[in-house]
Amino acid sequence: MIRLESIDKVYRTERVETLALQNINLDVTDGEFVSIMGPSGCGKSTLLNLIGLLDAPSSGRLTLDGAPINGAGDKSLARLRNEKLGFVFQSFHLVPDLTVLDNVEIPLLYRSISGAERKKLALAAIEAVGLSSRVHHFPTQLSGGQQQRVAIARAIAGKPRILLADEPTGNLDSQMGEEIMTILHDLNRNAGTTVVMVTHDERFAQRTDRIVRLFDGRQVA
């Protein structure tokens, strides 16, 4: 489903050249739950951004569903992100001015569907994360755990086959973290969603199908 071959990522400024990732080779199969671990600054988020098509590799080959991504234009990448990928961020990144429903509808705004259909899909996603009673609340009226659940609802509203989660429990206490992990596992098992998760938490990583370990931009396991 996701294949990375000999991926390098170099950040260049006028004076410094930083090698963030070096020779990464990774295959994520359909329906797999993979966690990425490593110390801070080892390139975990960079790797997730490459898989999420938010950033481009400096060299190497990236394929999604067998189709090469290198060199794709802005519109094609936007369409791929919209149709195939869902994102969950550590700091939720909900739009504060929008209600839960409006936030969850965001990915669906970029699809050719009616307003009624959009609302139906968004409400179903909100129900899936157990927040039906908070549909018209604003993010600031919710707890951290609830906000992350909204973020998950937003990520799955468009029924993507891949969910990319960047430290989804990083800003939550252990109980809320457990709740979020339960939702992610449910999505993986019940809906067959492929999940790639960056985490610092060994306990959560151990519960996934596979752990990819990075150190100084290199894949060590």
Binding site: G52, L54, D74, K75, A78, R79, R81, N82, E83, L85, G86, F87, H93, V95, I106, P107, L109, Y110, R111, R154, G158
Partner: peptide, 16 residues
């Protein structure tokens, strides 16, 4: 900025 990032991540093209 955060909202722009989110919209891009969820499929907004530059034109949109």
């Amino acid at each position: 900025a955060s909202e722009i990032g989110v919209r891009k991540a969820f499929g907004a093209s530059r034109g949109a």
